[in-house]
Design a binder for these strands. Structure first.
Lengths: 252, 252
DNA sequence: GTACCCCTTTGATCTGTGTCAACCCAACCA
DNA sequence: TGGTTGGGTTGACACAGATCAAAGGGGTAC
């Protein structure tokens, strides 16, 4: 049975009750990583409670004034940028413990849209307060910088993917990345439900939805995965990985 | 001979001579932006002098321990990531006033290579010191965050380019971006020399060098630019811009 | 419970860009 | 000064992925 097959995220937190970082089981993945007990308490104090979003609703939109960053508590998001001329690029998918909204720091305006792909909950972290606290807590400051830097490194990975990989390689990399992130959160790394459509995957990977669909089918024919709509089961992780390490000749 | 075949980093700066941020004509583009006189003096103190690099030499390499970020004082750099399996992706080109090395914060190791594409000089900014000072100077802290965030936003732009644009559009966007950055530095926005090869442009834009070359020729035939080897003159900026705003039908 | 709509799959065809190859040019070095 | 070499241009051809089209299925909303 797939671990996270039908996860309806039911907001379990009674109104007024706020789950503190110090109690949160994501603290090893999230912002408080590496903080002492006491410091974590101070972080708890500035985090402005949770915010729940129904599937399809925007956490923020491009152009909104930037005030906070967000930590995903439960659920699943996508971020995308769209330009005047109608281009639309999905820039990432975020799951529990990941931070959203850091693009807004530079201009004081959000530069992309963040949409919940399932019912979700986030922690709201007022950025001015976070800066204030991080100037007092050096380990928090340093960790914040790491989180920002990690986002840059992640983006470089996406550039590599978009700049150098073929459709099969992109999809394999995408599945393996999801697999690894689900695994890190205690879910099955081999059996999960996609939260996004083929079109959203395609936008993220620089492919058309038909190509995404065909490539999934092709992987299935090869016995690498099994796909039924949004449900993915990875049958052969090593072989999927081997798709990313082309034989020596095949350097594009 | 490969430019970067035999790179040795030779620190060439005459000992004792150091251009302070407060004197630097890049201060409005660079890290000290928005600092008071006094605070800028404190920043001067931590900046570890300059470092000169000959063309083709590495400022740092993937895997090097991360200690500093760098501000380009003069010259021109590229950054690239390469993977075990031989993929090579140029992730950016940096010119005066731009910051290099922020990818290294996350893992304490540099994750990409930075190579001087012409004889260049950088300021060395020890990151631990910068963190220490920025926890005392709020405006510096905030500006550092903006610089990190701006890099994220820039990367999103590259993703958009790689994910949604055709070759012509990519090249047009590339030229216009260079143009704008040269302009911001007081150089001609319409007349400049490329510092990188067609292959490096191609790697950055996710194209083969032949496609880059052909597209340049095509732009020239259309009267949009004139190209002679590395020298570019943009003849018609508005029409070049119009290539980026496809007619309504042409939404990919 | 049912109807509708969006998502997905699959096929046929087209095309932009990659690939392979040959040649040219300019810069650099001996 | 002439030879060498890396970078650039251009052509012919191939192919991965886009486009256009049609049909089926599952989830959602009512």
């Amino acid at each position: 049975m797939h671990a996270n097959a039908k996860q309806k995220v039911i907001p379990l937190i009674p109104p007024g009750l706020k789950l503190a970082c110090s109690q949160c089981n994501l603290r090893e993945l999230c912002l408080p990583l590496g903080l002492s007990e006491g410091d974590m308490g101070r972080l708890d104090n500035l985090i402005g409670g949770g915010r729940k979003l129904k599937r399809g609703h925007h956490l923020y939109r491009a152009g909104d004034p930037f005030e906070s960053i967000f930590a995903v508590k439960t659920g699943f998001f996508k971020t995308d940028v769209l330009t005047e001329d109608g281009r639309d690029q999905v820039t990432g998918f975020q799951m529990a413990g990941e931070i959203l909204g850091m693009d807004g720091i530079s201009t004081e305006l959000h530069t992309c849209n963040a949409v919940a792909l399932e019912d979700s909950e986030v922690c709201l972290i007022p950025f001015a307060d976070l800066e204030a606290l991080s100037s007092e807590i050096r380990s928090l400051q340093h960790h914040l910088h790491k989180v920002l830097s990690r986002e840059i490194v992640r983006d470089h990975g996406v550039m590599m993917l978009l700049g150098t990989m073929r459709a099969e390689e992109r999809l394999a990399a995408f599945l393996l990345n999801l697999s690894q992130r689900f695994g890190a959160r205690g879910y099955s790394p081999a059996d999960f439900n996609l939260r996004m459509t083929r079109e959203e995957i395609g936008s993220y990977l620089g492919l058309k939805l038909e190509t995404v669909s065909r490539t999934f089918s092709h992987f299935q024919d090869e016995g690498l995965i099994s796909v039924q709509q949004k449900h993915i089961r990875i049958m052969n992780i090593p072989r999927l990985k081997s798709l990313l390490a082309p034989a020596d000749g095949r350097i594009r």
